[in-house]
């Protein structure tokens, strides 16, 4: 009885051990290559519980979109400006077997991929001027780099999903020059604005002075006219009255003059 139990336990244990060697789980995020004595025999892409012979072993590779940070690369544009470009890429393993044979795993792929991406960066951006690089064409440039680097990537069993320029910086010396330029530009602008203010001020004041002068002159003109009109009317009134008897007017007016003058 006891011996029987022990034997059955051992058998059970062996069976379980064998079973554990012939079963493995493949998560959603992975793909698998089954190796028999080091030779790949098949690949598994669909996740779930998978079976294999107990003497085969399994290499798991990532099936997700993977990060690749490309080290900063100094690029000279076609107008001889230097630029430090920091790019990153996203890639996916499309052919696990090829990848395994060429570079063994994801990190191998990263090491190898950075080189074609950097050379594509240098090549593609080197043909462009600095301003194009900043312009709206940036998107299509990144696409060109991706397409170019993808030729090398496919050879590794990898597809580049995206290559993007994260940063495109000027080297320190150049950015200092930009700062100086920005500063002088702003100084110019400030001077211009102040001068404009002064200009406007003078214009408005002159306009006001002009208005005043013109207004006063017109008023002078009009008032003289009015005065003259008054005088003329008075002259006419006197003349009409005094013409009736010039001799008596002379006498009468002298009397008035005496009154005024001798008092």
């Amino acid at each position: 009885m006891n011996v029987k139990t022990i034997i059955s336990l051992i058998v059970l244990g062996l069976a379980l051990f064998a079973a554990s060697l012939s079963v493995y789980t493949l998560p959603e995020t992975r793909q698998a290559i089954v190796l028999q004595f080091g030779n790949p025999v098949r690949t598994h892409v669909e996740p779930g519980l998978k079976f294999k012979a107990p003497w085969q072993n399994v290499v798991l590779l990532d099936s997700r979109v993977l990060n690749l940070d490309v080290p900063p690369e100094e690029v000279t544009t076609s107008d001889q400006k230097r630029l430090v470009v920091d790019a990153f890429a996203r890639f996916q393993i499309t052919d696990a077997l090829k990848l395994y044979q060429r570079v063994f795993n994801e990190n191998g792929a990263r090491d190898f991929l950075s080189t074609p991406i950097r050379s594509q960066l240098r090549e593609t951006l080197g043909k462009q001027t600095f301003t194009t690089l900043l312009s709206a064409e940036r998107g299509s440039l990144m696409e060109q780099i991706r397409t170019g680097a993808n030729r090398a990537a496919r050879d590794l069993g990898v597809e580049l999903v995206d290559v993007r320029i994260k940063r495109a910086e000027l080297p320190k010396a150049n950015s200092d020059a930009i700062y100086r330029r920005m500063q002088t530009e702003r100084e110019q602008e400030a001077r211009e604005i102040r001068a404009e203010g002064e200009e406007e001020k003078l214009r408005i004041r002159a306009e006001a002075d002009k208005q005043r002068t013109v207004m006063l002159a017109r008023a002078e003109e009009n008032s003289q006219k009015v005065r003259g009109d008054g005088d003329a009317q008075a002259v006419k009134i006197f003349a009409d009255a005094f013409q009736r008897d010039e001799e008596f007017f002379g006498f009468y007016r002298s009397m008035q003059a005496y009154r005024k003058a001798l008092r």
């Binding site: 207004m215 017109r218 008023a219 008032s223 009015v226 008054g230 009317q233 009134i237």
Partner: peptide, 20 residues
């Protein structure tokens, strides 16, 4: 200035009226 101008005109009018 506008006030001054009006004043001048008014004075002139006044002069005229009074002279007449």
């Amino acid at each position: 200035a506008r006030g001054e101008a009006t004043k001048m005109l008014e004075e002139a009018e006044a002069y005229k009226e009074s002279t007449v």
